[in-house]
Design a binder for these strands. Structure first.
Length: 460
RNA sequence: GUGGUUGUAGCUCAGUUGGUUAGAGCGCCUGAUUGUGGUUCAGGAGGUCGUGGGUUCGAGACCCAUCUUCCACCCCA
């Protein structure tokens, strides 16, 4: 082998054991999504570049993976003519890119809805479990290729949707064994109201970016950052006074309602928040906390914003919100949506740290037939088929390899039973069945094999 | 994108101020046990020290570049 093969930075291979754990997360999410009536869809890994650009903010745009496609100018013009141009624009000529790998599942979903609107009935509830790509620097919990599990409902303004999504969030994590998460809820309209009242209406995005770091760098840190970004000091102080209030949600909302008098948008936000909370079943409501510092960078959110964190994990493991006009960009007006996205890979890392995956996931097969030669192995093929008809997993070792090698394979793969059928057993029409846990072995008639395995496995 | 960090056997890691032939544990292979794994014992294979340059009589170690790992920032699932 000349050079060791490798994979791109920030991507990973998954061994069977890891893959099973990942499947567990996907399966858990999928079953909850379906329980709430969401339907699966899939979209292509790549989108036209123009579909994605401008949707994620300046920072996001930089992280979109562009795919070189179409004919670049060098090919069109020929090597000779490009030499001069090359000197002036060194990275312009070779790059012609009009496609890109998807950055998330929400924007492609908006595109999907617009494109397929005639086939869908609204409100349309879908889920989607697929990989996305970001040209980020890899770090713990951040990869360049990772899976998102998205649930969205589009074509409905009702706040019952927000409530339902919070229920889903709660149930998915409960089912994964991650009951001790923090679900934080905020509303962009409230933030907007605070900005207006504080006289920071023109600095909305600067303000949100800064206050989002409040739990990390503290009030003073945020103040410094906002002033460094050029916000008027007076407004900064005012805004921070509103935001850094701590109390139970009803009290916070009442106080906010007082301070945002006269600001229509802010009042609407408060009202939405109230209605959302009121719609939550008690078991879910007690897990949701209002966090006025929650901002979220994605600029398409217009109402509720949701984020889920865990104290043992540095970044959010799930997030989402309401977007009033994402489809508008693609030509379909007045269709509002809400959704959340579960970061499967971050959830995986966290669950691995906390040792939360069920032990039974290390799925081992039930039965291995030792291969003693052609004639014997053919009998094994028949018996294996019969075992599988009763849903026992069974394999026949493919080569008549040394016994020791076959037994070692059985051991490392974790088979529960090894079945030996050599010339002796062929004559007797009964198999030697070895229990790999105890080491015991006994003779079982071919006809009684299924029942034997059933009794043994059923007893545990 | 900015700053730092890591890379030695299949895996986890030792390797002194630069100095002969680069080590350990685990795993793997062979045998004790030619129809019995996991335990035990004996033996064995496996490394151009991430890659490419450079300094030096001499580089796994020092310098530069590049790739990769992890971390902080930015941002985010």
């Amino acid at each position: 082998m000349a050079n060791k093969p490798s994979i791109p930075k920030g991507t990973r291979d998954f061994l069977p054991e890891q893959s099973l754990k990942r499947q567990f997360i996907f399966d858990t999410a999928r079953s909850i999504f379906q329980l709430y009536g969401y339907q699966p869809i899939e979209t292509p890994a790549m989108e036209n570049l123009e579909t994605l650009t401008g949707k994620y903010g300046d920072e996001g745009d930089k992280l979109i993976y562009k795919i070189q496609s179409g004919k670049n100018l060098r090919e069109q013009l020929g090597e000779e003519k490009t030499v001069a141009l090359d000197a002036v624009y060194p990275d312009w000529l070779p790059q012609k890119s009009d496609r890109a790998l998807r950055y998330d599942l929400t924007v492609p979903f908006a595109r999907f809805v617009v494109q397929n609107q005639n086939e869908l009935s609204f409100p349309f509830k879908r889920f989607q479990i697929q990989p996305v790509w970001r040209g980020d620097r890899p770090q713990r919990g951040r990869y360049r290729e990772f899976y998102q599990c998205d649930v969205d409902v589009i074509g409905s303004n009702g706040l019952l949707n927000e409530a339902e999504l919070l229920c889903i969030v709660s149930e998915v994590f409960e089912n994964l064994g991650l009951g001790d998460i923090q679900i934080r809820l905020n509303n962009r309209k409230i933030l907007s109201g605070i900005a207006n009242v504080a006289g920071l209406g023109n600095y909305f995005s600067e303000m949100t970016v800064a206050i989002d770091k409040l739990d990390k760098i503290g009030v003073e840190g945020v103040k410094k950052e906002m002033i460094a970004r050029g916000l008027p000091a007076q407004g900064v102080k005012k805004a921070l006074d509103h935001i850094s209030r701590k109390a139970d949600s009803e009290t916070v909302l009442r106080m906010l309602s007082g301070s945002l008098i006269g600001d229509e948008e802010g009042q609407r936000g408060i009202d939405e928040m109230r209605k959302t909370l009121r719609a939550l079943p008690e078991v879910v409501r007690e897990k949701v906390e209002i966090d006025l510092t929650l901002a979220r960078g994605l600029n398409y959110y217009t109402g509720a914003i949701i984020e889920v964190g865990h104290e043992k994990f540095p970044s959010s493991i799930c997030g989402g919100g309401r977007y009033d006009d994402l489809t508008g960009i693609f030509g379909l007006k007045d269709v509002s949506g809400v959704g959340v996205s579960f970061g499967a890979d971050r959830i995986y890392d966290l669950m691995e740290d906390l040792d939360l995956f069920p032990k039974t996931l290390s799925a081992s097969s039930d039965v291995l037939f030792i291969n003693f030669g052609e004639k014997e192995s053919l009998a094994c093929m028949e018996l294996a088929m019969k075992l599988r008809s009763d849903k026992f997993s069974a394999e026949v070792y493919p080569d008549a390899a040394k016994m020791q090698k076959q037994m070692k394979y059985a051991n490392s793969r974790g088979f529960r039973f090894v079945i030996l059928i050599g010339s002796q057993e062929m004559d007797d029409k009964s198999a030697t069945v070895k229990d790999m846990n105890t080491g015991d072995q006994q003779s079982v008639r071919f006809d009684d094999l299924n029942k034997f395995v059933f009794d043994k496995l059923g007893a545990e």
